[in-house]
Design a protein around this nucleic acid. Sequence first.
DNA 1: CTCCTTGTTTAATCTAAATTAGACTATAAT
DNA 2: ATTATAGTCTAATTTAGATTAAACAAGGAG
Lengths: 236, 236
Amino acid sequence: MPRKSASKPPADPSDSKSARTRERILDAAAHVLSRKGYAGTRLSDVAEQAEIQAPAIYYYFSSREVLIEEVMWVGVARLCEHVAEALDALPADTTPMDRIDTAVEEHLRYQLAISDFATAAIRNAGQVPEDIRTRQLAEEGKYGDIWRALIQDAQKAGELRADLEPRVARMLVLGALNWAAEWWNPRQGSLDVVVRTAKSLVRHGLGTPAVQEQGGTRPSGGSRARRTTASTGRTT
Amino acid sequence: MPRKSASKPPADPSDSKSARTRERILDAAAHVLSRKGYAGTRLSDVAEQAEIQAPAIYYYFSSREVLIEEVMWVGVARLCEHVAEALDALPADTTPMDRIDTAVEEHLRYQLAISDFATAAIRNAGQVPEDIRTRQLAEEGKYGDIWRALIQDAQKAGELRADLEPRVARMLVLGALNWAAEWWNPRQGSLDVVVRTAKSLVRHGLGTPAVQEQGGTRPSGGSRARRTTASTGRTT
DNA sequence: CTCCTTGTTTAATCTAAATTAGACTATAAT
DNA sequence: ATTATAGTCTAATTTAGATTAAACAAGGAG
């Protein structure tokens, strides 16, 4: 493994040829994993995609499993981070339902257009062996917390229809988004249409009729908004 | 392989020891495949579940792939059949949105509580190798047609919100349902709650506000209902 | 110029499964 | 009884990949 290199060339933090090759392998693995699935991901494919020979992977990762696990971890972590940042960037008085809108949009865009890592993590969550899965659950839990809070805030604000079981509603919505990776293909329909339809579906699916006026990307300010930075309590 | 057996014991259609063993293997394969995924499905596991030795499988199926493909095919075909029958059983004047409600309920119940085959087919649709996948698409297309028709009928009846792209809305709804297999566990929440929440989410997510009154399982008769046995035209 | 370290390669191993061979058992028709 | 056939088993055989071994290139340090 790349040592602390007490006396070598770049000797710097994150760049260096070494770091870049490692990234290349990780990217390649995400690419392959997101398409071929856990089972179908051969190290030789990853190597080809990364333009190296398969054994070189072992210079950076101790095993196939470790490599795949890192890809999956990165996938959820980044998605989580991406959505969290988008939510933080919203004005403080944004309505809970508008916040959900934003989460829907960012989740879809990040997963479908930006990151193979997110797709890899999502599509293989259920295919991976026990041990990896267990550790994944922790990270996925963090992402789930974001959504739990979103839903709970909507509920507190009276924007969530009463006949919905919050936990189930949350999982169904996430399912609709996650499954998009299974069918969406850039060549047969624009991402914008997917995002627009998903936002509408979710807003009307979750919200009380009163909350269903809304316009463009910028949420309509004012009204009976609520803040809530991140309610931690489990909703169910 | 089991011949036409021109002179053997039961000599009957579908029963016979042979037929039953074959079923047992198929069931076992569905069981394993629905849990472990395409990659994780070892013939030795299937054999164990079916209480035979692995090589015996080859007496009935020419290869692992053929076995798995049959499981997947049966999965979609039966789900399709199940939902179609439920829809056919509805009174002729059932509202399009009520028909969708029924489809949501039957899809979920069949997938989650009744058939490992359906779960196997759905969860592995994207993991399976190219050739199997291609053939699967045909069968999945038939199921998609049912939903295409459901949505289209709702649209014609003016029950579908206008800002939804029908094809995308359909896939998002199916995604929400399909993904349920990834998270639902009988021990942590009743299926009834899942069904109820899903129906509400879908009805309000897809429907115009006017269509959103509705009661129990028996659809409310009358109103501006429409029939439509099965509009074949592609919606998009 | 020679040596050491970091990356990387090619040429083995090793192993888990799938698949095949060939033997074995039960049953029923002759 | 004898034998043919369906159905199943145990003992190989094969193969695709993961993993390891060992050699090799580049570049700075002495």
